[in-house]
């Protein structure tokens, strides 16, 4: 019988403690962020889709079209093409396409890149109803970059 009342008492106590905790939390400030109105700054290491690094001096990319990124990509989402041009040493990049729909953001392309010509962008709020919107032409993007 003592156990019966004891269990009722301790049970009630635990219930009241719970109520006090939630009521106390009620008076605290929300911790959430109202997304479309406010948005977070990404950390510098954030892995968005890749982009070509813009060299501030030359105003263009540093890609030597070696194709190591394409080779090392697990999902085969990079397509690049370099052509030989007269008067220029090495190949000149004419096409650099990224199919972001299959990219897993593992970073192996960036690791494989000897000249450090690609980097992660900080873009994260990408949304579209059209798959084609995620096929990026990185050569075009490097021109638009500030």
């Amino acid at each position: 019988m003592a156990g019966y009342f004891n269990s009722i008492l301790t049970g009630t106590k635990s219930l009241v403690t719970g109520l006090l905790i939630t009521q106390a939390e009620f008076f605290k400030k929300p911790v959430t962020l109202q997304y479309p109105h406010e948005s977070l700054e990404m950390t510098p290491r954030y892995r968005g889709h890749i982009q070509l690094v813009k060299n501030p001096e030359t105003g263009t990319h540093q890609c030597i079209s070696c194709g190591m990124c394409q080779k090392g990509c697990p999902s085969g989402c990079i397509t690049l093409k370099g052509v030989k041009q007269e008067g220029v040493k090495g190949k000149v990049l004419v096409q650099y396409d990224l199919d972001f729909t299959t990219c897993s953001l593992c970073g192996q392309c960036i690791e494989n890149c000897k000249p450090g010509a690609i980097e992660f962008s900080l873009e994260y709020n990408l949304a579209s109803t059209n798959k084609e919107d995620f096929h990026y032409d990185l050569l075009e993007r490097v021109k638009e970059q500030k």
């Binding site: 939630t22 009521q23 939390e25 009620f26 008076f27 605290k28 400030k29 929300p30 911790v31 959430t32």
Partner: peptide, 13 residues
């Protein structure tokens, strides 16, 4: 709204 504040959210706004 109450549940949201208890859970440290904003609720309908």
């Amino acid at each position: 709204k109450g549940a949201a504040r208890i859970q440290r959210r904003t609720g309908p706004c």
